[in-house]
Every structure is written in structure tokens, then in C-alpha cells.
């Protein structure tokens, strides 16, 4: 591989995504899970922009832009929930939050 191809970026994207996924699966701290989700979103953006680069289209970049905007909204709400959680239950351990069961 003496030249950059889309595959390079796709592999990078896949690696970041899967690292993020493993983090979500294994970590217990809500905030770290949150950061791993951001990592996954970012990995997807790499794919989008890689495809945009390959196809000479801006659609991928614009999609990534929307992903960033949605990630910002998600961050605001997510962190708000974390704050409310820690205020009410005094924990950020995902395994101790079991209200979904009720």
C-alpha cells in the first residue's frame, strides 16, 4: 500500500469504532461510557469523510457535520442526565442504576 486508499480510513474508522464499542461494553463509569460513545460517533465521521474524499462529494462531510451537531445535543442532554443521576443516586456506576427494571 504505497498510496492512501479509502481502505486506510475505513480501517481506522473500524478500529476506533470497535475500541469505543468495547469500552461501552466493559466500562462501568457512565462518563467513560459516554466518552466511548463519542469515540464511536467520531469513528463513523471518519468513514463519512473518507467516502466523501473518495467520491469527490460533499455529502459525506455534511453528514459528518450533522453528526457533530447531534453529538453536541447528545452531550448536553447526556451530561445533564449524568448530573441529575449523581445528584439523586449519588453514583455514576452504571451497574447501580437499575431503575429500568421497574
Amino acid at each position: 500500500m504505497s498510496e492512501l486508499t479509502t481502505a486506510h480510513f475505513l480501517f481506522l474508522s473500524a478500529a476506533l469504532f470497535i475500541i469505543g464499542m468495547v469500552g461501552v461494553l466493559t466500562r462501568r463509569n457512565v462518563l467513560i461510557i459516554f466518552m466511548c460513545v463519542e469515540l464511536m460517533l467520531n469513528a463513523v465521521n471518519v468513514s463519512f469523510i473518507g467516502f466523501a474524499w473518495e467520491q469527490n462529494a460533499l455529502t459525506g462531510q455534511i453528514f459528518a457535520l450533522f453528526v457533530i451537531a447531534v453529538a453536541a445535543a447528545e452531550a448536553v442532554i447526556g451530561l445533564g442526565i449524568v448530573m441529575a443521576l449523581s445528584r439523586r443516586l449519588d453514583t455514576v456506576d452504571i451497574d447501580e442504576v437499575r431503575q429500568l427494571r421497574e
Binding site: 463509569n29 462518563l31 459516554f34 451530561l79 448530573m83 449519588d90 453514583t91 455514576v92 451497574d95
Partner: peptide, 14 residues
């Protein structure tokens, strides 16, 4: 995220 991390009690982080 850092902000929230610092507001949340450090000792409770699992």
C-alpha cells in the same frame, strides 16, 4: 465532560 467529572464526587468513581 471534564467539568462534570470534577463536579461528581471523585471517590465514587467505580
Amino acid at each position: 465532560v471534564l467539568f462534570v467529572l470534577m463536579l461528581v464526587q471523585q471517590q465514587d468513581l467505580p
